[in-house]
Amino acid sequence: MPTPDEIVRSMCESWNAPTPDPDQISKYFAEDAVYHNIPLEPAVGRAAISATVAGFLAPLDGIHFEIRHQVSSGNIVMNERTDTFHVSGRATPLRVMGVFEVNDGLITAWRDYFDLAQGNQAMGF
């Protein structure tokens, strides 16, 4: 079974596909997982996570996750990333701090912390 570190790295890499698939991304999560972008409301459950991911991806031409640093201890994984949003020919980086809980080979919680004003700019709002 992959380690929690490997699971989180694989999930982050799945966002870098030419056409990221929300259903493929959500397969890394437990059925009752919670995905919370801290300035926003959490998505609870795999179906809600897939819908949230689809909503994030809809206005984008692409996205790229670059893990700058990642540490893990037991089932907790933390990473510092730069998520670069591609919208209308413009690439906008967003610095993100992610905290993940992994149990039985699936992500059970994902919390991302970022500046909401920079996030809105990255999304073209």
Rank of each mutant, 00 (worst) to 15 (best):
M1H: 12
T3L: 07
T3D: 05
P4R: 09
P4T: 07
D5F: 14
E6G: 00
V8L: 04
R9Q: 13
S10C: 08
S10N: 14
S10H: 14
C12V: 08
C12R: 15
C12L: 14
S14P: 03
S14T: 11
A17S: 13
P20L: 10
P20V: 03
D21Q: 08
D21G: 00
D21T: 01
Q24P: 00
Y28S: 02
F29T: 00
A33M: 02
A33N: 00
N37I: 05
N37F: 08
P39L: 10
E41G: 08
P42A: 01
P42G: 00
P42D: 00
A43S: 09
A43F: 07
G45M: 01
A47K: 15
A47E: 15
A47Y: 05
A48C: 04
S50Q: 07
T52Q: 11
T52E: 13
V53M: 09
V53K: 03
A54D: 07
A54P: 00
A58F: 05
P59D: 04
D61P: 02
D61W: 08
G62K: 05
F65H: 11
F65W: 15
F65K: 05
E66Q: 14
I67T: 07
H69E: 12
Q70K: 07
S72W: 10
S72G: 11
S72Q: 09
S73T: 06
N75F: 02
V77T: 02
N79V: 03
R81F: 02
T82K: 06
T82H: 05
T84S: 15
T84A: 13
F85N: 04
G89V: 07
G89M: 10
G89R: 10
G89F: 10
R90V: 14
R90W: 05
T92G: 06
T92A: 06
P93H: 06
L94M: 08
V96W: 06
V96M: 09
E101K: 12
E101I: 08
N103Q: 12
G105T: 05
G105A: 06
I107M: 07
T108K: 04
W110H: 13
D115C: 12
L116T: 12
L116F: 14
A117S: 14
A117Y: 09
Q118R: 12
F125D: 07
F125Q: 13
